[in-house]
């Protein structure tokens, strides 16, 4: 489903590669957390999976497409099979909830009939069918993220990429969002979610891939969230305590700025 092999991503003007020889396999229906502090390479990895960027070396295959070689004409069609949500929701402020969701179908040329039905269905799924005619500014953060999720899954994507979807939300609201993402996963959608929120990672007991300085330092399919047995983390990182390993700091305060 997603296959990343020996991928290095070097941005222009930075000495250290954002990703360094990263390899990762994600199967259909998997639920994978990407963790690691800011700048560890989580977002770079997700950008590669979305084909917002191209790897400097190595191969990225997503849904059978070689993203190094895909033609720019095919990229839009590739992206239709992916859903994406972000920390900052990215809703259109001048459109209602229903219009925001419908917009993503209109611009890929779906028929009005299909759109009406699909939007109503997905809003019911995320529990916002009552608020379809509200503007984003009239919704709480959690509700806005539900709209964003609705928009991401309305076209029934095979993969959901979530970049810190709970980063702006309080713990109680986060829980509701996570329950929704789990339901989406149970319906068969592969989920890749970058997060800082250790509480969520601990509770959901899913596969965890930890990145540090652009390298995968842990890929743990079993439950549990432990320190790397080799102790490599603390020696590599001079004096900086990553938010994800700090129990005392609420994770949503340590989001990427």
């Amino acid at each position: 489903m997603i296959s990343v092999t020996n991928v290095t991503k070097q941005y222009k003007g930075s000495a250290r590669p954002a990703l360094n020889n990263v390899s990762l396999e994600i199967e259909k229906g998997d639920f994978v957390f990407l963790v690691g502090e800011s700048g560890s390479g989580k977002s770079s990895l997700m950008r590669l999976m979305l084909r917002e960027d191209v790897a400097s070396s190595g191969n990225v295959f997503v849904l059978g497409e070689n993203l190094n070689a895909i033609s720019s004409r095919r990229i839009p069609h590739f992206r239709r099979k992916l859903g994406v949500v972000f920390q900052d929701f990215r809703l259109l402020p001048n459109k209602t909830v229903a219009q925001n969701v419908a917009f993503s179908l209109e611009v890929i040329g779906k028929s009005q009939g299909f759109i009406q039905e699909a939007v109503a269905d997905v809003l019911r799924l995320v529990g916002l069918d009552e608020k379809a005619d509200r503007l984003p500014s009239q919704l709480s953060g959690g509700e806005q993220q539900r709209v964003a999720l609705a928009r991401a899954i309305v076209n029934k994507p095979a993969i959901l990429l979530a970049d810190e979807p709970t980063g702006n939300l309080d713990p109680a609201t986060s829980e509701g969002i996570m329950a929704l993402i789990e339901r989406i996963n149970l319906a068969g959608t592969t989920v890749v979610m970058a997060t800082h929120d250790r509480g969520i990672v601990d509770r959901l007991q899913k596969r965890v891939v930890e990145l540090r300085n652009g390298e995968i330092i842990r890929d743990q399919t079993s439950a549990g969230y432990q320190k790397n047995p080799t102790g490599k983390i603390s020696t590599n990182f001079e004096g900086i305590t990553p938010a994800s390993t700090s129990e005392s700091t609420p994770s949503f305060l340590a989001g990427e700025n």
Binding site: L50, I108, N155
Partner: peptide, 17 residues
């Protein structure tokens, strides 16, 4: 730019954009 960002994200074709 917001609309454009979302259109690219959800896979609107270049021609359409």
């Amino acid at each position: 730019r917001r609309e454009l960002g979302i259109m690219r994200l959800v896979g609107a074709s270049n021609f359409y954009i």
